[in-house]
Amino acid sequence: MRSSTPGHRWVPRLLMTPAVATLLLWMIVPLGMTIYFSLIRYNLMQPDQTGFVGLMNYEFFLSNPAFTDAVMNTLLLLGSVVIITVVLGLALALLINDPFPGQGLVRILLISPFFVMPTVNALLWKHMMMNPIYGVLAQIWQFFGLTPIDWLTDMPLGSIIIMISWQWLPFACLIFITSLQSMDREQLEASELDGATYWQQLRYLYLPHMGRAISVVIMIEVIFLLSIFAEIFTTTGGGPGTESTNLAFLIFTEALLNFDVGAASAGALLAIVLANIVAIFLIRMIGKNLER
């Protein structure tokens, strides 16, 4: 391979081909099939009824009152978890960044929830933490003389937000700690000599330094949280009603519980549109931060 000097432009392209080609296939083939399914009558329960139906599936899916709920829930879930994990993650990172006894162990214990699979996370919280009679939270509520909350019935979306935040807080915290480690110590000390308060340091030194890390955390969380599924599937099943149904779960119910592939495909395309709106918004907002 003597020919691979920088002058040969095809080498870098050749190296990129497998990744680009497979991802393109991974995107185009399902997308094409989904578009096709969304335009035909395709219900697994009524295999004899077929044919082109135009945009009827879209109308059907859009006129479903659950659709608006699902979009709102998707965005609410995304926004809440991002805000909770970024704010608490920053606070926690600032708290444990400087040495204290047991710092190493604290880091290992804190990161653990990130390694826990969503199904275990969901079952653990559903049963052992949030059960209104035997759960740990119920015991704590009773200890303080309060009426235990029936979490999954009374605040289903809130419960799911708690579970997912628990999982993603360690991730946010870790990235922030890594970022804090490259803070300019001398600058901090100088600001201390000049009599800067902690809040001033936070505002003018820490936060600007961590802008990029915050962007990265938001970006990655959005990627993973737009299509949360397993936590809802194993705990509330989207209910009660549609209170904890997000878009991913609504499409799933349409396809696999109502067997309406056509409507589900239309829903999937609407979900892709929503994801793209969020993506454009996101890249506009924090893309500049990543360019630096």
Binding site: L23, P30, L31, M33, T34, M219, I223, F229, I272, A279
Partner: peptide, 16 residues
Amino acid sequence: MLSTKMMPAVGALLPI
């Protein structure tokens, strides 16, 4: 590439 990751998996479920 990142935008393909934002596509909800459920959108690709039936075709896959």
